[in-house]
């Protein structure tokens, strides 16, 4: 499991691994928003938490199909599946790698982009906390979607259609956590709900994703 994790992370950091791509996409989406909305600082401050969360979610989505598709194409996925490592463990390792490669950089970069959107000072710690808690859920749910579409040519668009509705609860609680942090309100409810979603996803999604992979590798 550790070996798979390290292999995936190093592959992603190598040239052409797509490590910087999600981060650059995140940056570009956040920069585009003021061009669409206008430079009014008050409006930007109000929508900053939501924009940052939606952008992070889209950046995460962009790199999902790499979780299984590359290994499927070069034939190493069936090999990994027949190894002594249970498929659930493989899914967990691969989504953890996806999280480290995509979610973690997004979490670290998000405060810097918060300045661009004139986000309120009180929101910064909560932005980092919400993304740190929320991105594992995004990676786990995304791994399920990636497993569903692994055998398909042109699965990318279908993957977005399948995964985006599943992201709705995470997005609602994650963005609300930052918004409440910005307004200085109590953050207990969204914080707990977000944690529940992440823990539930980490506990249950590997089984769903592994079941789907077994069907696709049949």
């Amino acid at each position: 499991m550790k070996a798979v994790f390290i292999r995936d992370v190093t592959l992603a950091f190598r040239a052409g691994g797509g490590f910087g791509l999600a981060l650059a996409f995140f940056l570009i989406v956040v920069i585009l928003v003021p061009f669409g909305i206008g430079p009014d600082r008050a409006i930007l401050a109000r929508i900053a938490p939501g924009i940052l969360w939606v952008a992070a979610l889209l950046a995460c989505l962009l790199s999902l199909d790499r979780i299984f598709a590359l290994d499927y194409e070069d034939g190493s996925l069936p090999l990994l599946a027949t190894s002594p490592l249970p498929l659930e463990g493989l899914v967990l390792a691969k989504s953890a790698a996806h999280m480290v490669v995509t979610g973690l950089p997004l979490t670290i970069a998000a405060p810097a982009l918060g300045f661009l959107l004139n986000m309120q000072a009180g929101a910064y710690p909560w932005l980092v906390v919400s993304l740190a808690i929320g991105t594992p859920a995004l990676s786990m749910i995304g791994a399920f979607g990636a497993a569903l579409t692994v055998g398909l040519r042109r699965g990318g668009l279908l993957l977005s259609l399948l995964v985006l509705p599943l992201y709705v609860p995470t997005l609602i609680f994650g963005a609300d956590l930052v918004r409440r942090g910005a307004d200085g309100l109590s953050v207990t409810v969204p914080l707990m709900m977000l944690s529940v979603i992440t823990l539930g996803a980490v506990a249950l999604m590997p089984f769903a994703a592994a079941a789907v992979l077994r069907i696709n590798l049949r």
């Binding site: 509705p165 599943l166 709705v168 609860p169 609680f173 709900m193 979603i197």
Partner: peptide
Amino acid sequence: FALLSRYAAVYW
């Protein structure tokens, strides 16, 4: 997830 979204939307 549909059920979860329903409760999230009620909260939201």
